[in-house]
């Protein structure tokens, strides 16, 4: 099928327009981060005449950017590691014992989480975690792992239905216990769906704002990046060059990671969506 040239031109111009709309805020953020206030009042859209590092340095030195970056990294990585072990484990047990009432019950109990918006537990966990002394990174990690279960188990159990039970049986005859069957045979086979789950959860945990706002807003040294940028903006909103330097630095890790992994990321999401 050959499309008409006019239609093709129309298609490309719409797509180009869309890309411009996406890029303008990014362009403004990056350029304003490197401009002095005098320079940006003259023109918002001009390229910076020189790379002025003052704004960036203020964000790093005065505002303590590194601490928040490290907090975000620690919380995201530990949560993801736990998620990628616990979710396949419980899904494996459920899918291999689905005829038993206990497993069926916990499966539907965990799926029921789809119907419960976060707002229902938002205020109770505020009280609850403060009673348990969990208004810290450990509490954040526990909550992220818990909240990832519903979607993760739904995706994993669906995936495991397509992995034949004969594989389990063969490995049992070969003398594997369940743990060995899981680690040596099933877990490696689950790699595609595990990667989808890790992708979805890494975007959510890294960017999440509500949970840090509820659990971590009391002391500044435990903030994650989204909570930092929110508090930073309210403190420095009068100096928008400084604010944009903060936005730029907050986005920089994910921009670099995205540049490196985007193809994989999109395909990871697509595969999850197709299941």
């Amino acid at each position: 099928m050959k499309a008409k040239p006019a239609a093709q031109a129309f298609r490309y111009s719409i797509l180009a327009l869309g890309m411009i709309i996406i890029m303008i805020p990014m362009y403004l953020t990056i350029t304003l981060a490197f401009k002095t206030t005098e320079e940006s009042t003259k023109s918002f859209f001009s390229l910076p005449s020189s790379l002025y590092m003052g704004n960036i340095m203020t964000v790093i030195k005065k505002a303590g950017f590194w601490t928040y970056f490290q907090n975000s990294v620690v919380i995201t990585i530990i949560s993801l590691l736990l998620i990628m072990i616990l979710v396949p484990m419980v899904s494996f047990a459920i899918s291999r014992n689905f005829q038993k009432p206990y497993y069926k019950f916990i499966y539907y109990l965990m799926l029921a989480g789809i119907f419960v918006p976060f707002q229902v537990i938002m205020l109770p966990i505020l009280q609850y975690t403060s009673d348990l002394n969990l208004m810290n990174h450990a509490g954040m990690i526990i909550m992220y792992v818990t909240l990832s279960l519903t979607e993760g188990i739904f995706l994993c159990v669906g995936f495991l239905k397509n992995i034949q039970f004969e594989l389990d049986e063969a490995s049992t005859i070969d003398g594997c216990n369940i743990w060995q069957t899981f680690t040596k045979i099933i877990f490696p086979l689950m790699t595609p769906i595990t990667l989808t789950i890790v992708t979805l959860n890494s975007l959510w945990i890294w960017n999440d704002f509500v949970l840090p706002l509820i659990l971590l807003n009391r002391s500044a040294d435990v903030w994650t990046l989204p909570l930092f940028i929110y508090n930073f903006q309210s403190e420095y909103s009068f100096d928008y060059n400084l604010a944009f330097a903060g936005f730029f630095l907050t986005m920089l890790p994910i921009i670099l990671l995205y540049g490196y992994m985007q193809r994989f990321l999109i395909s990871g999401l697509t595969e999850g969506a197709l299941k």
Binding site: M89, V90, A93, N97, Y102, Y103, L109, G113, I142, T146
Partner: peptide, 12 residues
Amino acid sequence: YFLFTLPALLLY
């Protein structure tokens, strides 16, 4: 198998 479900169930 029951042990496999335990961590997730307790958290949930």
